[in-house]
Nucleic acid binder design. Structure first.
Lengths: 196, 196
DNA sequence: AAAGTTCACGTACCTTCAGTACGTGAAGGA
DNA sequence: TCCTTCACGTACTGAAGGTACGTGAACTTT
C-alpha cells in the first residue's frame, strides 16, 4: 500500500519543524527564538507551523517529548545490560548523568521545560519516560528487600532532582574529575538506602 | 539629616514595582505577565519602570533576589538555633523543605528563575544566599570529621537539587504524610554521609 | 474520468508586548 | 533666583505570537 504522497509530505514538514526548532531552542533558549526564525530554518511558513501545532508552546512540547524519549532510551539501554537490579539502578543513574551533560538536552529538558509547560506538566511527561524507569527500579529493589521499605515517590523525586541539578552543574564545570566525584557521592547516598 | 523627599519617593515606587510584580509573577508566571499589568497594579507608568530597571528580566531579578534573601534568612534562623553542626544541617534542610512549599517561592525561585536568568546566573545568585549556608555547613562537617572527606561542591549540588525537586513535588501533593516521608528519606541519605 | 471534497499549506493581517525617545515639572544646589 | 538634576509621564516603534482566509494539489465519489 502507498502511504500517500500527501501524508508523506506532511510528515516531512512536521519533522523539519521539530528538528529546526529543537536546534534553535537548544542554542538560544525558548524565549529568544522567534517563530519566524523557525519557519525560515525549516523552509516553510507560519501557516504550516500553525497547521501542525496550535501554539509555540505545543511545538516546544513536541520537541521536549522527542528529547525525553531519547534520554529514556539511552538510559534503559545501559541499565538493561545489567542483570542485578541494584546494578541497574547504579548504572542507570550514571548513564543519566552522562547523557544529561549534553547542553542540548540541558536547556530543553531541564531549564526551559518546567518554565514553558509548567512544572506539573513537565513532571507528568517525565513520569512517562525516564522517571518511570527510576521509580520502577526503586520499587523492585524495595520489593526484593534490597533497600529499606518506604514510599517510592519521595525517594524518586529526591534522586531525580539531585541528578538533574548535578547534571546542570557538571555541564558547566571544567574539572573532569567533577563527574567522578559526583558519581561517587551519588552512589554513597544510594548505598544508604540499602538494608544493612 | 533628611533623606530627601525625592529619594524617599523613588524608593516607594521601586518597592511598589517589586511588590506587585512579585505577586503577579508568582500567580501567573513570568511569561504570562505583561509590563502594562505590572505598572497598572503599582500605580505608575512604564516610564517609571524603565527608570528603575533596564529590562523585564532585571525586574524579575530584583524580585528573585528578595525571595532568595527571605528564604535564606528563614533557614538560617532555624539552623542557627542549634548548637551541633550536624543538627544544623538536618534542621536547615527540613526548614528549606517547609519554606519552599510556598507556591509563591516555588514559581519564582525554582521554575522561572533558571529559565529567565539562565541557569548559571541563577546558580550564582543561589550561591550567595541559601546555597552558601548549605556549602558552609557541609564544609564544617567534613572539617570536624563528622562526614566522610570528599569534595564539597558535588555534594552541595546533589542535595540542593534533591530538595528543590522534592519541594516542588510536595507543594503539589495532597497527602500530608508526604512531607514526613520525604524528610525521612532525606535524613536517611544525609546519614549515609557520616563516617561510621 | 470528471466533478466534488479534503487538506496542507501560503498570504495578509491583527493584537499585544517589550522597549525607546522625548517632554515635564518638581526637588535640590549655587 | 537661576540653573541643574532627576523621577517620572506620554507617545511611539518594531517585532512577536496568533488568526482569517485564500489556493492548488491530492484524494474520493459517482
Amino acid at each position: 500500500m502507498t502511504r500517500g504522497i500527501r501524508a508523506e509530505q506532511r510528515e516531512r514538514t512536521r519533522q523539519a519543524l521539530v528538528r529546526e526548532s529543537r536546534r534553535l531552542f537548544a542554542t538560544l533558549g525558548y524565549g529568544a527564538v522567534g517563530l519566524s526564525e523557525i519557519v525560515r530554518a525549516a523552509g516553510v511558513t507560519k501557516g504550516a507551523l500553525y497547521h501542525h501545532f496550535s501554539s509555540k508552546a505545543e511545538l516546544f512540547r513536541a520537541v521536549l517529548e522527542q528529547v525525553q524519549e531519547e534520554v529514556a532510551e539511552r538510559i534503559a539501554e545501559t541499565a538493561d545490560a545489567r542483570e542485578d537490579t541494584w546494578e541497574q539502578l547504579i548504572s542507570g543513574c550514571q548513564a543519566f548523568l552522562t547523557v544529561s551533560t549534553d547542553p542540548v538536552i540541558q536547556r530543553i529538558m531541564l531549564v526551559d521545560g518546567p518554565a514553558v509547560l509548567g512544572w506539573s506538566e513537565w513532571r507528568a511527561m517525565n513520569e512517562t519516560t525516564s522517571g518511570r524507569h527510576l521509580a520502577q527500579v526503586l520499587g523492585d529493589l524495595i520489593e526484593e528487600g534490597t533497600i529499606t521499605a518506604q514510599p517510592v515517590e519521595p525517594l524518586t523525586h529526591l534522586l531525580s532532582g539531585a541528578m538533574n541539578e548535578a547534571a546542570l552543574w557538571l555541564a558547566a564545570s571544567k574539572d573532569p574529575a567533577d563527574l567522578d566525584d559526583t558519581q561517587n557521592a551519588l552512589v554513597a547516598m544510594l548505598r544508604a538506602l540499602r538494608v544493612t
